[in-house]
Design a protein around this nucleic acid. Structure first.
Lengths: 223, 223
DNA sequence: GTCTATAGGGGGATAGAC
DNA sequence: GTCTATCCCCCTATAGAC
């Protein structure tokens, strides 16, 4: 069905990684699923780690380009004025949710990605940081401009919480069933629900934080 | 330092599981860390899976008892009237955040738990479902009563999103650093930030969901 | 490019002495 | 209860034929 072995391996790996996790997925499972030989992985990718990296990069690069394109479009339209928070949320999270609804690969990939932010594996975090660097910088700038009344540190935490909600929205279907029977078959509904939740959280009244004595610096010397 | 081998194994396992993940943590690492013999795990727990289950049960049972106790206290005070959403959020998420701030074990455990909801491993999901059954039932009921204007399905999704935000708040410190340098050393500040975000999301205006043709039923026959 | 065969290491589990 | 020694399995990676 697929043209070349390389693509078949990537597709099979993507499916299996989301089902079993990074460690529990073996090269044997992957090559069997791809109807390829065991040695093909090392021939095409060099190692299991490089294969996993390729699985992520293939779609993640595209996803973040889409995010930036969406942001570009809104900014062109605004002609230098700050965007509405809703537009920025849409450009970042909306694009992700829509990719997660795409049955042609995007869906399984996004489930994989969703659970990987918190994955403890080092090499994954390393290349994720690379892949995200540009898009994070762009969106931070846009948000800071759109929300001048929200302290930047507060905003970063909210962004982080929003990523958590996105992650669960996409890949937490199993955790969701803890809560009881629920219909997760409608991507448009999920999109609408997530957007209003995120914007509600983003625009919530600011918490009162007690200023802390700066004991942070004291321990620093030891390192 | 610890009294018995069994407890030392549990402590060592907890630390290593959060560092390396479930699969990558080996019994040899655990027994070395616990200064115990390799065979001790099988003697005390029977298998690696049973050990992992014991690690979770040890603290999760207690956490959910605390949540229910907090809810009980609010409900006793309210004398049959619906609680404020803020109180219910406090009882469920506040207790978790406070446990996550406890250096004596709670902290590493909560990080482990946070990344486990989305873990693809089957046996973990099975006993998590057991452990959560009662607390979920209690909190769903309290929320439904407190938010009669929010459709139950919409609320379940919001609860799910809130769990995602909590999970990232606790265990996503690494993902957080993608966003730039940020201070996560103050648990009280984290608590305040998360609470206002969650309540903002929970109380957000309801999204407009297009009613979908009930095509869900059609596919059911095949199964 | 794709295969077979195998090296080389590490895993979980267990038998049996103490 | 705790130990040592070991079984047996499956892993990743690679050498070398085709």
């Amino acid at each position: 069905m697929e043209p070349d072995t390389r693509s078949r391996i990537l597709d099979a790996a993507e499916k299996l990684l989301v089902q079993h996790g990074l460690d529990a997925t073996t090269l044997r499972m992957i090559t069997t699923g791809a109807q390829a030989n065991l040695a093909a992985v090392n021939y095409h990718f060099g190692s299991k780690e490089s294969l996993i990296e390729a699985v992520f990069r293939r779609r993640l690069t595209w996803l973040n380009e889409q995010r930036i394109a969406a942001l570009d479009a809104f900014e062109a339209e605004a002609r230098g004025a700050p965007l509405k928070p809703r537009q920025i949320v849409e450009a970042f999270f909306g694009v992700a949710i829509r990719m997660a609804a795409d049955k042609n690969g995007g869906q399984t990939f996004m489930r994989l990605l969703g659970r990987t932010y918190t994955e403890p594996t080092d090499f994954v975090r390393t290349f994720l940081a690379e892949e995200y660097a540009e898009v994070i910088a762009r969106f931070k700038a846009a948000f800071f401009k759109a929300l001048p009344d929200v302290p930047q540190e507060e905003f970063l935490w909210r962004f982080h919480f929003m990523m958590g909600a996105l992650s669960y929205a996409i890949s937490g279907a199993d955790a969701l069933r803890l809560l009881g029977p629920i219909d997760d078959s409608d991507p448009d509904a999920l999109y609408a629900r997530l957007m209003s939740f995120l914007i509600g959280g983003l625009r919530a009244p600011l918490p009162e934080i007690q200023a802390k004595p700066a004991k942070k610096q004291r321990a620093r010397r030891a390192a």
